[in-house]
């Protein structure tokens, strides 16, 4: 399971980086979403995945070392919420930029460089 997920992380990062390097702003944002999901999976994977033993749910924990670690879940939940906000902001910014300039091409963003 962990090897599969590790491969998935790799695939997500590859896809994300490919999308980030494209010229369109929208594709850049999609790439960021991919990388964000891959990162969340890393947080899960690095702390060890335990299947079928949710933490603290029924209050009858026999062996705390066997149940899933609730902390990474809290981290991932928080970071999912944060990236939700960031992605929406990025999309709003992109829409506004498109309305004003009529372009979605990152190569046209040269005005502030010199």
């Amino acid at each position: 399971m962990e090897i599969l997920l590790a491969l998935l992380v790799g695939v997500l990062y590859t896809t994300g980086i490919y999308m980030v390097l494209r010229r369109s702003i929208l594709k850049f944002i999609i790439g960021i979403i991919f990388i964000g999901n891959a990162t969340n999976l890393i947080v899960f994977l690095a702390s060890g995945i335990v299947a079928g033993e949710p933490a603290f749910v029924d209050g009858s924990v026999q062996n705390a070392s066997q149940m899933a670690d609730p902390l990474p879940q809290a981290f991932v939940l928080t970071s999912v919420v944060i990236s939700f906000g960031l992605v929406v902001f990025a999309l709003a910014l992109k829409l506004k930029f498109f309305e004003i300039t009529g372009t979605d091409d990152l190569d046209q963003l040269k005005k502030t460089d010199n």
């Binding site: 850049f28 964000g36 990162t39 947080v43 994977l45 981290f75 990025a90 930029f97 963003l109």
Partner: peptide, 27 residues
């Protein structure tokens, strides 16, 4: 808006790297 997009792009990637490093550290 243009400056904002550039600022956003690199800083978003920065915070994702932060999160990945944090995950490894916790693990």
């Amino acid at each position: 808006l243009e400056g904002g997009i550039k600022y956003m792009a690199l800083n978003l990637i920065g915070s994702l790297l932060f999160l990945a490093g944090l995950g490894l550290l916790y693990g």
